[in-house]
C-alpha cells in the first residue's frame, strides 16, 4: 500500500518534470547559450547577452510588460462589469430568445478570431481607434468575455432566488443585496473568469498586432519576431519573462482573493 503510493508519487513527479520542467529547462538553457548548434547536447558556451538585451539596454521590455498588464487588467475589469449583469439576466430572466443571446456571447469561442478582427479593424479605422490602447482593450474583449460570462453564469446558477428574497425580507435594497449576498456567492466564478480573461488577453498576438498596428507594443508583439527567425536565445528569454509575468499575475490574483475571504472571516471573527 505504502510502497505503491510511493511509486505513483515518483512516477507523477517524473511525468511532471518531463512535461513541464523539461521545456522550461530547455528555455533556460537556450536563453543563456551562445551558439548552441547540432549535434551538441548542451551549449558549448554560455552568455547572459540575451537577458541583458531583454531586461536592460535599448529594448522596450518594461514598457511592453506595462502595456500588457494594463491591457489585461483593464480588459478583465470591463469583463467583470459586463459579465455580472449579463449572467444575471441570462440566469434569472425567462427570455424567449435566450439561445440567441447565448449564441452571440459565446460566438467568439467558435468563430476564428481572424474573421472577426478584420471587421473590427475596419470599423476601428473609421472610428480612429486603431493604434490606441483603448482600441486594443475593446478588441480583446471579444475573445475573453465568453469565458468570463460562462464562469459567472455557472456561479449564478447555483444561487437560488430564495437567498435574495430572504435578504429583501430582511430589508436589504438592491445594492446591499448584491454586495452582501450575491457577490460573496459568485466571487469564485468571477475569480475563475478573471484568471482566464487575464491569461487570454496577455497571450493575444494577432488581435493586438492588427488593431494596435505595431504601435501598441505588448510582450507577445516583442516576442514573435524573435521566435519566427530572429534570435532563439532572446526569444527564450522573452518566453520565460512572459511565463513569469503570467504566473505572477495569477498568484497575485489568488492572494487578493484569499485576502477577500480572510477579511470576511476575520470581520466575522471579531464581530
Amino acid at each position: 500500500m505504502n510502497k505503491t503510493s510511493w511509486l505513483t508519487k515518483i512516477i507523477l513527479v517524473v511525468v511532471l518534470m518531463l512535461f513541464i520542467g523539461l521545456p522550461f529547462l530547455l528555455l533556460v538553457l537556450s536563453s543563456i547559450s551562445f551558439g548552441w548548434q547540432w549535434p551538441n547536447i548542451l551549449p558549448e558556451s554560455f552568455s547572459f547577452r540575451s537577458w541583458e538585451y531583454v531586461l536592460t539596454g535599448s529594448s522596450d521590455t518594461w514598457r511592453a510588460v506595462g502595456f500588457s498588464l494594463l491591457i489585461a487588467v483593464t480588459v478583465t475589469a470591463v469583463n467583470i462589469l459586463l459579465a455580472v449583469p449579463a449572467a444575471k439576466s441570462l440566469v434569472r430572466n425567462q427570455l424567449r430568445a435566450k439561445w440567441l443571446f447565448e449564441a452571440i456571447i459565446f460566438a467568439p469561442i467558435v468563430i476564428p478570431p481572424f474573421v472577426a478582427v478584420m471587421g473590427i479593424h475596419l470599423t476601428f479605422l473609421r472610428l480612429g481607434l486603431t493604434e490606441t490602447v483603448l482600441g486594443v482593450v475593446l478588441a480583446h474583449l471579444s475573445p475573453t468575455l465568453p469565458y468570463m460570462v460562462r464562469a459567472v453564469v455557472i456561479s449564478y446558477n447555483t444561487l437560488s432566488v430564495d437567498w435574495e428574497d430572504q435578504a429583501r425580507m430582511l430589508g436589504a435594497g438592491t445594492i446591499s443585496r448584491f454586495y452582501h449576498v450575491v457577490l460573496p456567492h459568485i466571487m469564485p466564478g468571477i475569480a475563475a473568469g478573471a484568471s482566464l480573461s487575464i491569461l487570454i488577453s496577455l497571450s493575444q498576438y494577432l488581435i493586438t498586432f492588427i488593431i494596435g498596428s505595431g504601435q501598441v507594443v505588448t510582450l507577445p508583439i516583442l516576442l514573435f519576431p524573435f521566435i519566427s527567425g530572429g534570435d532563439p536565445a532572446i526569444a527564450s528569454a522573452y518566453s520565460l519573462l512572459f511565463a513569469g509575468i503570467a504566473i505572477l499575475t495569477l498568484l497575485g490574483m489568488d492572494a487578493a482573493l484569499k485576502k477577500y475571504y480572510q477579511k470576511k472571516k476575520t470581520a466575522t471573527g471579531k464581530a
Binding site: 430564495d162 437567498w163 430572504q166 425580507m169 430589508g171 435594497g173 452582501h180 460573496p184
Partner: peptide, 15 residues
C-alpha cells in the same frame, strides 16, 4: 424590503 415584514422560508437560508 420597505414593508418591515420578515419571512422564514422552508430552508433556513442563513448566509
Amino acid at each position: 424590503e420597505d414593508r418591515r415584514f420578515a419571512m422564514v422560508f422552508q430552508k433556513s437560508l442563513l448566509f
